[in-house]
C-alpha cells in the first residue's frame, strides 16, 4: 500500500518534476497538489489518509511556513519542507524546524529545480521513507 503524498508548490513545473519523481517511487503515491498554503489547507479535511506533505516555502497567498504553523495542528501527515531557501543550517531551515517540520530537504537548483531527481532524489527518498516509517 503506497503512502499518500500531497505536493504544495507554486511552480507548476516543479509540481510536474516532483510528480514524476514520485511516480518512479512505487511506495509513494501523489494524491493531491496545491499551488499555495491556503489551497493546501483547504484540501486537508478531504485527505484524512494523507501520509506526507512535500512543502515549498515561497508561495503566494499563504507561504509554506504559515501553512506549517496551521497544518501541523490539523493533520497527522508528516510534513517535509522541499524548498530552495532551506539550505542546511540556514535561518529558514532553522525556522522550519522550529515550527515543527518533520523533515527538511533543499532543492538543488532553485525554486524550479529540473535536476531534483538527479541531484537530490536519493536524499529526498531517504527522508520521505524515514518520515513515514517505511
Amino acid at each position: 500500500m503506497p503512502y499518500n503524498v500531497m505536493v504544495v508548490d507554486d511552480a507548476a513545473m516543479m509540481r510536474l518534476y516532483i510528480s514524476s519523481f514520485l511516480k518512479s517511487r512505487k511506495d509513494f503515491k501523489l494524491v493531491a497538489q496545491a499551488a499555495n498554503g491556503q489551497e493546501a489547507l483547504d484540501k486537508l479535511p478531504d485527505l484524512p489518509d494523507l501520509d506526507l506533505i512535500l512543502l515549498d516555502i515561497e508561495m503566494p497567498v499563504m507561504d509554506g511556513l504559515e501553512f506549517l504553523r496551521h497544518a501541523k495542528l490539523k493533520t497527522r501527515a508528516k510534513i517535509c519542507m522541499l524548498s530552495s531557501v532551506t539550505v542546511q543550517g540556514s535561518p529558514l531551515a532553522a525556522k522550519a524546524r522550529e515550527l515543527g517540520a518533520d523533515g527538511v530537504v533543499s532543492k538543488p537548483s532553485g525554486t524550479v529545480s529540473h535536476d531534483l531527481e538527479e541531484k537530490t532524489g536519493d536524499e529526498l527518498t531517504r527522508v520521505m521513507r524515514a518520515l513515514v516509517g517505511a
Binding site: 543550517g89 540556514s90 535561518p91 532553522a94 525556522k95 524546524r97 523533515g103
Partner: peptide, 11 residues
Amino acid sequence: QLTMALIDLFA
C-alpha cells in the same frame, strides 16, 4: 535560532 540550525545540520 542557532539551536534549530544545529538540529537541522545534525538531522
